[in-house]
Design a protein around this nucleic acid. Structure first.
Lengths: 360, 360
DNA sequence: AGTTAGCACTTAAACAAAAAGAGTGCTAAA
DNA sequence: TTTAGCACTCTTTTTGTTTAAGTGCTAACT
């Protein structure tokens, strides 16, 4: 999208209005803009320009005789302008890295910490998302004898993650039966997706296990569970209380709906699943298909690991969020997180940030 | 605590006031009480009694010429009266069990589902807590060769939970070295708590591993991490948006503080760690040490498994929450959850609800 | 002595009218 | 093309008034 249509002065005015509104939250009038410096003309001129900007759809007027407020298009112009030039002032980066490093752990944990951090640095609501994995398979199984009535299945996924599950059996089991089970699972259940696990297959496996066939049912069910569970996708958020500081959320109805949507998860999950470039994405208000977001914007960045999107971190806030700051912050945090989980090649003899993916 | 001081009529009035206030949310006047049936005297009499109840501290007046509102003591009386007699009308139990069973999985997941359920059934905010485990040890280790630069440690805790962690090494490893590592860990690191793992011990282990000593450092660090991580304690909540329906939270400041406390976690965690009977606990307003709770009540029940508290589920809501309903609901859900995770003896050949404890 | 009816009093909430303020659109002059 | 000025519009704030609810108290009643 190009904005050639806008004269240089209009751009300046629009930018001034957006920033003033972000700052103060209230409609901004012609007088304020001219006082702000930058422009060397009178308020009347500004008024004329603003009237035109309104007609073009960049500004809105809550009512006659109120100042102007940026429309969604206005915000869009603003952030598009920003992304080309936003300055990577790396002053809080130290803090970012410190906080993240001190909390290294499973990927879930990193994402959650990142979300917290995003919230803290921006004063909006931070979100962290583990996207739905389209289709996952197991690349290897290990089975551990736990006690006479329990065994543990260790599954290594095609993405190299490790999942475990304890399985309880009705009849007692032996070390030997456990080994046979492992061999069987490795022989028949590697590399196939959840929907390929059907009854005939199970029956066949049961037969192969002979008198220990009872182990199969439980084991397969549990493998199936894990496969679908990983598929799930998950959304964490933190710092909702931050939103309460912004008057646009003082209407409890709107806030309630937003919170509801957040808890539903699915909608937001779909939202970020759609748009994934490698960069920071900005969804402004009704640009997203989620109704409830009409009053809010979402800034997020996918986290890639070996080219695969393993997570999304971002920030949710009012339409008039401080995009300049937020864009920078999310980009930085995203970078740090990617650094932490992405470098599969950098070996240092230290514990690697767990790929354990631990259940939920 | 005994309430002999209260005449039968005072009790009736108090109960009527509490229930009317819970129902409507507004101060209740003498007239309303008498209209409500139950009492066969005039409003003037009620007024006298209410004045006395106020002096005794059971009721409060927002201002002269408003009706009365229960004080915290008033609520306390009410719930204490309730617990002796609340009727276990088991009508939604079916739903409870159904929902819980359909979502069986790790204990974390069960707790989260339970929290959601609690929220849905009560229309308040549901909470689920995994308490801090005081001191944990490992009872057995298994080590799995992953690839040349990675191995997986499977740890079985003293509580019978399973944790795994993938460890990356600088130098390449063999199947044989992995087996030696397992033997070593089992020989030296079973049954000892995190603080017993010190440098001399590590050095000794390194020596024992010979040329594969580099594996020790990473492995031990990771074991240590898991031990302390489990210790963490965790709080999940759901249905905060429910709170917005209650006028007491329309003051965004109060709501914000409450949300902040919820996200802090530590305070609530301490709170429920303190009081643990086997039954439903009720913390009314400032009875709890958390300042922010002045306006809210917390109803919760510990979940025990083999005598050990493995979780807490509960509900957070306004002072005037519908205790009758909530008490019953939490008791039921608590019971169902306990059934699901508690019966280590009931064998049925099905997958047991995972004890995996999956990391965060 | 306990209960009731009646009434004066208090206070918050609801309503209405008026005043203030902010900002625009438009016209006419520079 | 810009600017100054002014009338107009609409919201917000203020102020005053009314209404309604509910109490406390006194005096009569059982």
């Amino acid at each position: 999208m190009f904005y050639e249509e806008l004269s240089e002065r209009k751009k300046t005015i629009l930018k001034a209005v957006v920033e003033a509104h972000i700052e103060g939250g209230e409609p901004v009038g012609s007088k304020y803009v001219v006082q702000n410096g930058l422009l060397t003309c009178s308020s009347a001129t500004i008024r004329n320009e603003m009237a035109e900007l309104e007609q073009m759809g960049y500004l809105e007027q809550p009512h006659t005789s109120a100042g102007r407020v940026p429309s969604e298009l206005g915000y869009r112009f603003y952030v598009d302008m920003l992304v080309n030039q936003y300055d990577t002032v790396t002053k809080e980066v130290a803090q970012v890295n410190h906080l993240l490093k001190s909390k290294m752990g499973e990927i879930d944990q990193i994402l959650e910490t990142a979300s917290r951090l995003a919230s803290k640095l921006t004063n909006y609501t931070g979100i962290a998302i583990k996207p739905k994995a389209s289709s996952i398979t197991m690349s290897r199984y290990e089975v551990i004898w736990f006690d006479e009535n329990n065994f543990v299945i260790v599954m290594i996924t095609s993405h190299g993650n490790v999942k475990t599950k304890k399985v309880k059996t009705a009849e007692s089991i032996t070390q030997e039966s456990v080994e046979r089970l492992a061999a069987l699972l490795n022989a028949h259940l590697c590399g196939i997706s959840a929907d390929k696990i059907n009854l005939p297959l199970i029956v066949e496996l049961e037969k192969a296990m002979g008198s220990d066939g009872f182990m199969i049912n439980a084991a397969v069910k549990c493998i199936y569970d894990v496969m679908s569970e990983i598929d799930g996708g998950e959304l964490r958020y933190s710092g909702i209380n931050n939103l309460l500081n912004y008057p646009e959320y003082s209407d409890t109805r709107q806030l309630g709906e937003l919170l509801g949507t957040l808890e539903e998860q699915s909608q937001i999950l779909d939202l970020v699943s759609d748009a994934d470039s490698d960069n920071v994405n900005v969804l402004i208000g009704s640009e997203s298909s989620v109704k409830v977001m009409n009053n809010s914007s979402l800034v997020f960045k996918p986290i890639k690991k070996n080219g695969r999107t393993v997570g999304v971190i971002g920030v949710l806030g009012p339409l008039r969020m401080d995009y300049k700051n937020v864009l920078r912050t999310i980009d930085e945090i995203g970078g740090s997180v990617a650094d932490m989980i992405g470098d599969d090649r950098k070996l240092d003899g230290k514990v690697k940030e767990g790929d354990n993916d631990g259940g939920k």
